[in-house]
Structure formats: structure tokens, C-alpha cells
């Protein structure tokens, strides 16, 4: 290769470097997901990406392949090496990710947890739905639908997990605040739709006077609908309150089975997570716990909510 060519190549390379817009002033944010590719996570990740684009930062999105914790650990380590300015992460495992998160914090990189908290280390911020408050929204709506002394079914989530415990507590506390003598018949599940269906079937058989069913998640509501169909109950005859604002949940509402849904603001969880990480990277003060809130979806606003939240793209009935 001649000297001219080498010199020309170098000049071209320098020109390219100069033309890069503010390569040094730009912040780099690593968004590390848990590798989940379901509808909910597609919305969260979409919100995160959008927020990164809007802020004009360099946005690196990496995922733990197959939800494998050791791969997520390696990604966090690699992002410390990559000297990113902040990390926003949806941990595969609350405890297991903490050794690498400790190192990131020690290297001066702020870490924001998204949707799932990180235990064993004090992180910069945790952005997620406050389950108790969201379930309060669900319980308040339910208390307006029934009278004191009525029978209500509550389909729980896993009671060995904080999410399941908080949703149940939030719902029952809000309901009992208005109606102290209401009878709550519990159907215990471990986030399993079939358990929900079987449980609701059994309770309905023994109690024909149930007025309302509330569920800790929309999959449970799907199970409840199946049980009601089996028992020959018509849509709306027993009121049903879902939780999540999932595509399946909103479809149930459009079919007339569900009358209310405490929806999580999924895209907002991702967006606020990344915005918080950016703020922390700019050395701004951020809250240690950020609640992205819940929205009470009703038949009157379901179409607007589905469209605004992005859930509509996954629904059967648009």
C-alpha cells in the first residue's frame, strides 16, 4: 500500500471522526432487559427505547438471552467496561444480579431497576407500579359496585411473592374500608389460569349469590370468565375486575365480561426508567422509588386507553 493511500485513509478517518455529532458530549445509557419477549415486555421495552430516542442519548439495548441470570451478569460487567453513563435494568432475579450491580455502583455508574427491584444493594432508583396503590384503585371501584354484606370472590396471585401479597392487600383493604362486613371468598393461585378457573367454578357452585369477582392479574380473570361461561352465567351478570390492562384483559372488557381493569402503565415504566437513568447520569437528584401509577380502565375509556398505551396492537378486537 502506497504512502498516499495510507495518508488518504487517515485523512478520511479523521474527517469521519470530526463529522460525528458531539461524540464526546453524548451520554451513553445501557438498557438491559430480562430477555422476556412477551406483549407486556414489548410495551415496556418500546417505552424505554422511545424515551432514549427522545432524549437524544446513545441508547444501548441488550438482553439476557433466555432470561439467563449469568448472561445478564456478564452484560452488566461488560457495560461497566464499556464505561456507560448509567444503567437501566430489568433484573432477571432480584438477588442474583446484585453482585454485578454493586460493582457498577462502585465504578460510579448509577443503576435504575425497572419493574423488578434489586435486593442486597442500595440502587439509584426503582421504577415500577406500586402494587398496593394500583390494587387500591381496583378495590375502590369494586366498593362502588357492591353493598356491605355482599359476597365477593378474590382470585389471588402467588402469596409467596411480594407482588401477589401486595395486590391482595391493596384490594381487600380498599374494599373493607367502605364495607367492613363484606364477605371475600378467596381463590388462591400461583398465577395459574387453570387454578383460577377451577377455584372460581367451585366457589360459584357453592355460592350462587356472588356479586363480583376481582382478580390479581388478567390471566386469572380469563380463568374466571371460563368458569362463568361453564356455569351458564351471562356477561355482566357478575361484575369482573381485572388487573394489568393486558391485551387479553381489554378484549374481555370489549366482549362485556370485564367491567373494570386496574391497568399498569407498561410503556411508561420503561420510559420513566430510562428518563430516570438519564437524569442520574446527568448527576441530577432522583427519587429512590418511583411509582408509575395505575389507570382505571372502564368500558367508557377502553378504546382510548388501548390506543394511547399501545396495547391495542396486541388485541383481537381493535
Amino acid at each position: 500500500m502506497s504512502f498516499k493511500k495510507i495518508a488518504g485513509g487517515m485523512a478520511f478517518a479523521m474527517l469521519t471522526v470530526c463529522m460525528m455529532p458531539n461524540a464526546h458530549a453524548e451520554l451513553t445509557i445501557a438498557y438491559i432487559t430480562n430477555g422476556n419477549t412477551n406483549e407486556g415486555w414489548t410495551l415496556i421495552n418500546g417505552g424505554a427505547k422511545e424515551a432514549g430516542k427522545k432524549a437524544g442519548v446513545k441508547f444501548i439495548e441488550l438482553a439476557a438471552e433466555k432470561g439467563e441470570l449469568s448472561k445478564q451478569l456478564a452484560i452488566v460487567e461488560d457495560m461497566i467496561t464499556r464505561k456507560v453513563d448509567a444503567i437501566a435494568i430489568a433484573p432477571v432475579d432480584s438477588a442474583g444480579i446484585s453482585p454485578s450491580v454493586k460493582r457498577a455502583l462502585a465504578a460510579g455508574i448509577p443503576v435504575v431497576a425497572i419493574d423488578t427491584n434489586i435486593t442486597g444493594v442500595k440502587i439509584t432508583s426503582y421504577v415500577a407500579t406500586d402494587n398496593i396503590k394500583a390494587a387500591n384503585v381496583q378495590g375502590n371501584w369494586a366498593s362502588g359496585q357492591v353493598k356491605d354484606g355482599d359476597k365477593v370472590i378474590y382470585v389471588t396471585g402467588d402469596q409467596g411473592q411480594s407482588t401477589g401479597q401486595e395486590r391482595k392487600k391493596g384490594f381487600i383493604d380498599a374494599l373493607k374500608a367502605k364495607h367492613p362486613h363484606i364477605k371475600v371468598l378467596e381463590v388462591a393461585t400461583t398465577w395459574d389460569q387453570t387454578q383460577a378457573q377451577n377455584g372460581v367454578e367451585a366457589v360459584l357452585r357453592a355460592n350462587s349469590d356472588v356479586k363480583l369477582i376481582a382478580c390479581a392479574w388478567d390471566g386469572g380473570a380469563l380463568g374466571a370468565v371460563a368458569a362463568m361461561k361453564g356455569a351458564g352465567i351471562k356477561p355482566g351478570q357478575i361484575k369482573l375486575a381485572g388487573f394489568d390492562g393486558s391485551p387479553g384483559g381489554l378484549d374481555m372488557m370489549k366482549e362485556g365480561w370485564q367491567q373494570a381493569n386496574a391497568a399498569q402503565m407498561l410503556a411508561k415504566i420503561g420510559a420513566v426508567g430510562v428518563e430516570t437513568a438519564i437524569a442520574a447520569a446527568k448527576k441530577q437528584k432522583v427519587e429512590a422509588r418511583i411509582d408509575t401509577g395505575a389507570f382505571l380502565v372502564l368500558p367508557s375509556n377502553v378504546d382510548k386507553f388501548a390506543k394511547d398505551s399501545g396495547v391495542a396492537q396486541f388485541m383481537k378486537m381493535k
Binding site: 433466555k66 439467563e68 441470570l69 449469568s70 451478569l73 432475579d93 438477588a95 442474583g96 446484585s98 453482585p99
Partner: peptide
């Protein structure tokens, strides 16, 4: 070594 590195353990580790 793996569970030491993750400071935790469960049945879902070491996928694939």
C-alpha cells in the same frame, strides 16, 4: 463457581 458468582441459586440457573 456459578452460584458464587451470582451470590444466589435456583433451579433455573445455567439454561442452555
Amino acid at each position: 463457581v456459578l452460584i458464587g458468582r451470582m451470590d444466589s441459586s435456583s433451579g433455573k440457573i445455567a439454561q442452555m
